[in-house]
Amino acid sequence: MHAFSANRRRLLALGAALAASPLGERIALASTAPEPAAELAGVTLRVATYKGGWPPLLAAAGLADTPYKIEWHELNNGLLHIEAINADALDIGSGSEIPAVFAARRKASVKFIARTREDLNNQVTLARKDTPIQHIAELKGKRVGYVRATTSHYFLYRQLTEAGLSFDDIHAVNLAPADGLSAFDRGDLDAWAIYGYNGQLARNRYGARELATGKGYLSGNFPIYANPRALDDARRRAAIGDLLVRLRHAYAWANPHFVEYARAQSAETRVPAGDLVAMFNRRSDDYSLLQVTPDVIAGHQEVADAFARIGVLDGPANVAPFWDASFAPIIQSA
């Protein structure tokens, strides 16, 4: 745990006050605390985002007016987030547990300071509508698309293992998501393990049938990655704490106001808001931002061990030293 100066304690106290206030009062409350806000006025956080991610979420929730500057960088891959953090080009990023496993293996300069809970029903293994495949066990000998070293790789491995199969029993085809959708459309794949909006497109456009989702195979924890150099800087650390509080409240707001968030996402992504709402309505869990707990670290280690066992990693990875629970008090206070 870092030692806090008096100013840093005041800044984190402001974050707690923001967290405790009603949604409509948060921005007004920030403006009534000029001394801490002034201290953060010269801070710039370099934050990686996904298209349709945190910027429209914060804006839709009315929480985008921060007392510090955010320099957004759109990087639609968690590995890129970590690489940029490791190179000191970013302060904050996010992604699944999988890039975090690789970061731990190569001892990257990164910490995992919080986690979001996201939908596991859009992490899915699909069969083409014109195949007789009804169960994972029937994938033996079939052409199955996936994205190597991602959540789809991991949940497909778990689903195959449960069905008494392995990757050696299928014709596994590693494809980027857009290429996988095209291959699925052409009939080059019998089944496809995929995540995000591409799975929804496969259902809507091509009548894909769901064999299994990621629920029960993935933890649902998606780490927030941080630059250790930013955490060691008092003012940037305080700004990071404030951003975590804002994101926690924004996720809590989005669950009962998802139509508004979907419209904001659609404006940025051009994905129809109706499709986004349909995905949300079949979600596995509500969205949230949560603190680091021991079970999160233990679950992440299970992923690392599995990838080492099947040869995706070139050796063991110990993830525990990369998790940082020091923001737990401010997150819990929200």
Rank of each mutant, 00 (worst) to 15 (best):
S5L: 02
W72C: 06
K111C: 07
R309S: 11
D286A: 10
R246V: 05
A176Q: 08
L189Q: 07
A87G: 05
A239H: 01
T161N: 06
D232G: 11
F184I: 09
E97R: 09
A30I: 12
G315T: 07
E268I: 02
P22M: 10
S166D: 08
D275I: 12
A37R: 11
P316Q: 04
R263N: 14
L181Y: 15
A3S: 15
H249L: 15
F167A: 02
N281I: 05
P99W: 02
P132S: 08
T269R: 10
A59H: 05
R246S: 11
Y261N: 04
L189F: 03
A84D: 02
H153N: 15
A202H: 14
R203T: 02
P67S: 10
D168T: 05
G311Y: 12
A304N: 04
L211Y: 11
I136P: 03
A267P: 04
Y197F: 11
E268G: 00
R115H: 11
S152Y: 09
I70M: 06
D233S: 08
L79A: 08
T161H: 14
A308M: 01
G62R: 10
I70N: 07
K111I: 07
Q200N: 06
P99E: 03
Y261L: 14
A273E: 14
A267T: 06
A137F: 01
A6T: 13
F155Q: 10
S326L: 00
A108M: 15
T125M: 13
D233E: 09
L63I: 10
W54Q: 12
D285L: 05
H135W: 08
A60M: 12
L75C: 00
V271C: 01
N174V: 00
A176C: 00
T269K: 07
Y154A: 15
G145Q: 07
F222I: 05
N227G: 02
F258S: 05
A178T: 09
Y197H: 15
R203E: 04
A239I: 04
Y157V: 00
K140N: 04
V296T: 08
W192P: 00
E260D: 15
A308G: 14
L126T: 02
R237K: 02
Y217E: 00
L18A: 13
I194T: 15
A320S: 15
G187R: 06
A37Y: 08
L189D: 00
E71Q: 10
W54H: 15
L90Q: 03
I194D: 09
Q123S: 08
K69D: 05
L57C: 04
G15H: 00
D314M: 01
F258W: 10
H73S: 09
V43S: 01
A30Y: 06
